[in-house]
């Protein structure tokens, strides 16, 4: 049996072509504290330098055998480029992700600058992708990028409660605002694709049914996601965390190549609903599994994801960087060994 390199393995998975074994990868951040320590830097330093950003992704993948490298890590790069500022917590010794301090207080205040792709840390992220691409020419890693979905991104730049109440009380203006956020999402995602990334995840994480009704999801979220996936090149992934059981079929109708959900989803049921042709990714709790559990418990969690019908085991969110060494090793080992058998949508090379 031919052994594929990570880049080929991931590419073939999204084309639903037979692979040698399940890749161990994600569409979200996989940076680990072990990599950061080995580089001799602090977590706060990875967000502001292309070398540290790309270097920590590569180092994490090398240390543990991940098939992918994914940047950036924080959700504030684009909001910052739109002029909303950034809190980097750069004096902190702890693991604190950057956040957006100044949201627009009202829809009337929203003003999008023309040059946002070249503002703030956006060029640094581009440079990071350049480093990742140059280091993965030999197929050593698949390079992943992600953008927030328009509703989640909107919540980064405007008060979320204004948005949530606005969808009921001020529907037209909120919809127009979300259309604008969708245009921005498409432009950024296309820009990353133009840099040569191997797959693109759209994270509409704030839109699960913990917050929105399925009906609201259908009218407010779905049309914008459909427009995004129609505008992007394959492969694309539609990721939502939180409660997704009631919307997973609509997620699959948005036009992405794969659907990704977190541990709140009933995966076995989702597989039944979506059938065996759909690529489904998920769905373990990264913090619980890799930071809290005993290493001996990890294998069962990963096996359950595979037995429930995922085509690749994805964490439900970014890995929390302070992972236990042995837990990550058990996760990677189980994915690669137990993932040798075919998954519902993706066969195996014989």
């Amino acid at each position: 049996m031919a052994e594929l390199n990570p880049k080929e393995r991931v590419a073939r998975l999204f084309r639903r072509e037979a692979i040698d074994t399940m890749p161990c990868f994600s569409g979200m951040g996989m940076v680990t504290i072990q990599a950061i320590r080995e580089m001799g830097i602090r977590f706060a330093q990875v967000h502001t330098s292309a070398e540290n950003l790309a270097g920590s992704a590569i180092k994490s993948a090398e240390l543990f055998g991940f098939d992918s490298v994914v940047i950036p890590y924080d959700m504030g790069t684009l909001a910052e480029a739109l002029g909303r500022g950034i809190s980097l917590y750069d004096q902190s010794e702890d693991i604190l992700y950057p956040t957006v301090p100044e949201k627009w207080g009202d829809l009337d205040e929203v003003e999008v600058p023309d040059n946002y792709l070249s503002n703030a840390r956006m060029p640094m992220v581009d440079e990071g992708f350049g480093i990742l691409n140059s280091k993965s020419n030999n197929g050593q890693f698949a390079v992943g990028a992600w953008v927030l979905g328009p509703f989640t991104f909107a919540g980064q730049v405007i008060e979320l409660d204004l948005l949530l109440k606005g969808v009921k009380k001020d529907k037209e203006r909120v919809e127009a605002f979300l259309t604008k956020m969708t245009d921005i999402t498409i432009e950024v995602a296309k820009h990353y694709q133009s840099l040569g990334v191997d797959y693109m995840t759209v994270r509409e994480m704030g839109s699960g049914t913990d917050l929105l009704s399925p009906r609201m999801w259908k009218t407010l979220i779905k049309p914008n996601l459909e427009r995004i996936f129609a505008a992007l090149e394959s492969p694309t992934i539609n990721h939502i965390c939180g409660s997704t059981d009631m919307i997973v079929e609509m997620m699959n109708d948005c036009g992405a190549d794969a659907v990704s959900v977190d541990q709140k989803n009933n995966m076995a049921e989702s597989r039944k609903k979506l059938g065996n042709d759909t690529i489904i990714l998920g769905n373990f709790d990264p913090y619980g599994t890799l930071c809290q559990m005993e290493a001996s418990e990890v294998e069962a969690v990963i096996k359950k994801c595979i037995d429930d019908g995922v085509d690749a085991v994805w964490p439900g969110c970014d890995l929390w960087p302070d992972v236990k060494d042995e837990n990550v090793k058990a996760y990677v080992r189980t994915v690669k060994e137990y993932g040798k058998k075919a998954s519902p949508a993706v066969g195996r090379l014989t």
């Binding site: 949530l164 109440k165 969808v167 009921k168 009380k169 929105l212």
Partner: peptide
């Protein structure tokens, strides 16, 4: 009972 979601609850709170 999934009749109300967070947007409705926020408005009720107001």
């Amino acid at each position: 009972s999934n009749e109300y979601f967070v947007p409705e609850v926020l408005m009720c709170a107001d």
